[in-house]
């Protein structure tokens, strides 16, 4: 031990002057030759320079070898994945392409019109359900977080609801409510339209999921925020409304959006109880033409709605972040 003592230790005997030639990375990257060859060239150059003792140029070449190896990963993998998909699509005399993307059906205007009519039902269902779920799930989340002994029974009830409806497949809930409520003349809900039953069923299912998202968001807001709000004289509900919930909602936009995309897709379930939605109509097209192109077309319609929706919400989230977080 030297005189610097235990905490400092002895000066390191290691060298920092090694030259990295990235030989292994270059060899692996040869699996994608266009960039792999460049990587190998620089790696060899680096090794050669290092042997001559020209450390700085050797390092520079080594760095280039590393950069090109990473290009091999990024570009090479992409090219190979796309090539594999093309291979699948056009193999067997294009059977895959014909089953999924038969041009004669894809270009048929009447099929698209029929599908769009059905898709409009799906759109209505998920738009209405999303609005109701947004409110209903927040109510459930807040009930689950009510403080105090007195609220224990109602907390328990809310927990039970969430546990039950998260556990049952949406398909079963839609079937049970959509077919059963009418048959059993359930009070208050014995005489609704198919679409209303579907909205009710999906609200109950997704309300359970989304309430958990809200709950996580509310719990993630530091307790000091509630303390500060209460200490200013705001009541518990005022504190939730003005301080805690707004922060919680901003934090859970991404998972909320995730659940809503799930909901948009799950509206496909309603074809099971005889609603002529996009999936039911796609099935007709498939059956009459003997392909699966109808489903592909329906899938495209879902894509068309979901992807812009995602981008829009991401933009919205970025905007609020820029506003509240320091842009120093």
């Amino acid at each position: 031990m030297n005189e610097l003592g235990l905490l400092v230790g002895s000066p390191s005997p290691r060298r920092v002057g090694r030259v990295l030639t990235y030989r292994k990375a270059a060899v692996v990257s040869l699996l994608f030759p266009p960039t792999g060859i460049a990587s190998m060239y620089y790696s060899l150059k680096s090794a050669g320079l290092a042997r001559k003792g020209e450390v700085e140029p050797a390092r520079e070449a080594g760095g280039k070898a590393r950069d090109w190896a990473w290009y091999s990963v990024g570009i090479g993998l992409t090219v190979y994945v796309i090539a594999f998909m093309a291979y699948v699509l056009f193999n067997n005399d294009g059977a895959v392409r014909i089953v999924f993307f038969a041009w004669s059906i894809l270009s048929d205007r009447r099929s698209w019109v029929s599908l769009l009519k059905g898709f409009w039902i799906n759109v209505q269902v998920f738009m209405i359900t999303e609005v109701i779920v947004l409110v209903w799930a927040l109510v459930v989340a807040i009930v689950r977080l009510l403080p105090g002994k007195a609220c224990r029974p109602i907390r328990f009830l809310a927990t039970l609801y969430v546990d039950v409806f998260r556990a049952i497949p949406a398909l079963l809930v839609v079937s049970l409510i959509g077919l059963g409520f009418l048959q059993a003349k359930v009070p208050l809900a014995g005489d609704l339209s198919d679409m209303q039953y579907v909205i009710l069923a999906l609200t109950l299912t997704y309300g359970a999921y989304v309430s958990e998202v809200y709950r996580a968001g509310i719990e993630s807001v530091h307790w000091g925020q509630l303390a500060a709000a209460r200490s200013l004289g705001l009541s518990y509900s005022q504190s939730l409304r003005h301080v805690v919930v707004p922060q919680a909602v901003r934090r859970v936009v991404a998972p909320l959006l995730n659940d809503f995309i799930g909901l948009q897709k799950d509206t496909a379930i309603i074809s099971f109880i005889g609603v002529l939605d996009v999936v039911a109509r796609a099935r007709f097209i498939n059956n009459s033409k003997g392909t699966l192109a109808g489903y592909s077309m329906a899938a495209m319609l879902f894509l068309l709605v979901t992807i812009p929706f995602t981008r829009w919400l991401e933009w919205l989230q970025r905007r609020t972040q820029n506003r509240t977080q320091g842009g120093r």
């Binding site: 530091h222 000091g224 925020q225 303390a227 500060a228 709000a229 209460r230 200490s231 200013l232 004289g233 705001l234 009541s235 301080v243 707004p246 922060q247 901003r250 509240t324």
Partner: peptide, 21 residues
């Protein structure tokens, strides 16, 4: 009435606890 009480008593915390939104 805790809300009325707290109107009479201001408190400032170590961690500021301003509302970030």
């Amino acid at each position: 009435d805790v809300d009325a009480l707290r109107q009479e008593i201001g408190i400032v915390f170590q961690s500021f606890n301003l509302f970030p939104h």
